[in-house]
Simulated assay, not measured.
Amino acid sequence: MGNVVYVETSVISYLAARPSRDIIIAGHQQTTQDWWASERTNFSVYASPLVFREASAGDPAAAIARLQCLRDIPLLAITPEAEQLAETLIQRAALPPKAAADGLHIATAAFHRVDFLLTWNCAHIANAIKRPLIEQICRECGFAPPVLCTPDELIGGNRDVE
């Protein structure tokens, strides 16, 4: 089945959240719901135990909704190699120390040769300024980096061009 996608926790959070009054967040929520409904079947979708752990945190009712979204999503193992790559991303300043979990999302996706890491975290993951260094470090450590993108960027890629 086509390309492989790792869904990061922010995607699951937007998918399961009550509609926001903030117009930007509401737009992201709608895009996420559209991607989940119409595009997800075009990909092999995975998460990780870290996504599961993060989705389990916080308000119990919201956590249940997030975990419901993850119920049929297989989890990729967090390996020692991924943990080392995540640490290297922080040591080399591709990510700040407070973004250790974000580094582990990227590293887990890279270790498992995932094609796309789907996220709404544009501060540390889908960030055009940080992307070249993240990709360089992944390659230097022997891993092909996933394409770091938002659901906006991953819609329609598998459709025939008219």
Results as ranks from 00 to 15, higher is better:
Arg131Ala: 05
Arg131Ser: 08
Pro19Glu: 10
Phe52Ser: 05
Glu83Ser: 06
Ser20Met: 01
Leu76Val: 11
Asp102Arg: 07
Leu95Cys: 01
Ile23Tyr: 07
Val161Leu: 12
Ser56Glu: 06
His112Glu: 06
Ala99Pro: 08
Ala47Gly: 06
Ala93Trp: 14
Ala107Gly: 04
Leu75Ile: 06
Thr119Glu: 04
Ile129Asn: 11
Ala65Met: 12
Thr119Trp: 04
Val11Trp: 03
Pro19Cys: 04
Gln84Asn: 11
Asp152Ala: 13
Leu118Tyr: 06
His124Met: 12
His112Pro: 12
Asn158Asp: 14
Pro97Tyr: 08
Phe43Pro: 08
Arg18Tyr: 10
Gly142Met: 09
Thr79Glu: 11
Pro49Ile: 11
Glu153Phe: 05
Lys98Ser: 13
Asn42Gln: 13
Ala107Tyr: 00
Tyr14Gln: 15
Arg71Cys: 04
Phe43Met: 07
Ser48Val: 01
Asn158Lys: 11
Asp102Gly: 06
Ala94Gln: 05
Ala101Asp: 12
Pro97Glu: 06
Leu50Met: 04
Ile134Leu: 07
Ala123Val: 12
Trp36Arg: 08
Pro74Phe: 08
Gly27Pro: 15
Tyr14Arg: 12
Thr31Ile: 14
Leu75Gln: 09
Ala86Gln: 04
Arg92Val: 07
Gln136Asp: 08
Leu133Val: 07
Pro146Leu: 03
Leu118Met: 03
Ala107Leu: 04
Ile125His: 06
Ile12Glu: 01
Ile25Met: 11
Pro145Ala: 05
Ala107Asn: 01
Lys130Cys: 00
Asp34Cys: 12
Asn127Ala: 02
Ser38Glu: 10
Arg139Gln: 13
Leu67Met: 09
Arg53Gln: 15
Thr9Glu: 02
